[in-house]
Amino acid sequence: MHYTGEVYRPPLEAYTPLLEVTYGCSHNNCAFCTMYHRTQFAISPMADVESDIIEISQSYPRPIERIYLLNGDPFVLSTEKLIEISDLIHKYIPEIKTITSYASFYNLKNKSKEDLKVLREKAYNELWFGVETGDREVLSWLNKGCDLEEYHKGLEKMKYAKMSYNAIVMQGIKGRGKSKENAKETAKFLNTYSPIGIFIMSTDVQYGSLLFKMREEGKFQETTNRENLEEQIELLKNLNVPGDVLYSSGHIVNLVRVSSHMRNKEKMIKKLEYALESLPTEVLDSKNQARAI
């Protein structure tokens, strides 16, 4: 298998075969992210892609119904290139049902709604989007490569194509004192076209990121654990999505972990409220995310 530089995938894809079609990140400029700073973006040669598909077909237990494309944003590839990759996957793994990867609304600016419809028919039917926030103010400096209007245009394309997506959301990204506002705006965005999964990540200020520079200059103040819990509660209260949507703050970066389907929204809210009532004040008012319950 060809794996170049850093390799990342969502926790839920832990047992999914990983196929490198790009490495690094074509955008690589998000204010909070340092994941691909050491790896220059490039597109994998199709000969390498094909040999890796063959290896996956021979080394993984069959049937193989799902495959995950690496790395930072494979959906930056042209529609034609993505179709070529899909055709190769189907050639060697005909039972495949889902081809998934990280994607962004930045990627969708160069794809039409008809492109997405064709790609969905080619098994690109469930993608992972770093939504981060639905707050216009935050998006203005987050350097996601698009603004809130372009976010909504991307959603409309996906809705037309009936393309499913998982949304990764960052709690605390609007900064201290603004958590509930961020939660309401993010919920409003997610309610527009519901994802099939909502995954919460706590904002972590990484050395070398623009966000680190902003913090050092006093332009960004980190939220406390208390604010992050309050933000999750506000987000859940404002989400109006189907009951079968998966909601999870189960990632290790989060202080309190809840994971269930939205039909159990009230139970998740109660667990978060209990944490607010029962955790020590020094933990709640700390910015340290090391402890989890």
Rank of each mutant, 00 (worst) to 15 (best):
G5R: 02
P11R: 02
L12I: 14
T16N: 04
L18A: 06
L19K: 09
L19F: 12
L19P: 04
V21P: 09
G24E: 12
G24N: 11
N28Q: 12
N28G: 07
F32H: 11
F32Y: 15
C33G: 02
Y36D: 03
Y36C: 06
R38Q: 12
F41I: 12
D48I: 10
D48L: 14
V49N: 01
E50L: 07
E50R: 15
E55S: 14
Y60P: 05
Y60H: 11
L69W: 11
L70W: 03
D73M: 11
F75Q: 10
L77K: 05
L77P: 05
L82M: 10
S86I: 07
L88N: 08
H90R: 14
E95I: 04
E95D: 14
T98S: 12
I99V: 13
N107I: 08
K109T: 13
N110P: 03
S112A: 05
S112P: 11
K113S: 12
E114G: 00
D115N: 14
L116Q: 06
K122W: 13
W128A: 09
V131P: 02
R136W: 07
L139N: 15
S140Y: 06
W141V: 10
N143I: 02
L148H: 10
G154K: 02
G154P: 02
E156Y: 01
Y160D: 05
A161P: 10
A161I: 10
A161C: 08
A167H: 03
Q171C: 07
G172S: 01
R176I: 01
N182G: 00
A183R: 04
E185V: 00
K188C: 08
Y193R: 00
P195N: 03
I196M: 08
I198W: 08
F199Q: 05
I200Q: 01
T203D: 01
V205P: 01
Q206K: 15
S209I: 01
S209A: 07
L210R: 09
K213Q: 09
K219Y: 12
Q221C: 04
Q221P: 00
E222C: 12
T223C: 13
N228Y: 00
L239S: 04
P242K: 09
P242L: 07
V245H: 02
L246C: 00
S248A: 08
S249C: 12
H251A: 10
I252H: 10
L255P: 00
L255D: 02
S259A: 14
S260W: 11
H261D: 09
K267Y: 10
K267L: 08
E273Q: 15
A275W: 04
L279S: 09
T281V: 10
L284H: 07
D285K: 10
K287E: 12
A292M: 11
A292G: 14
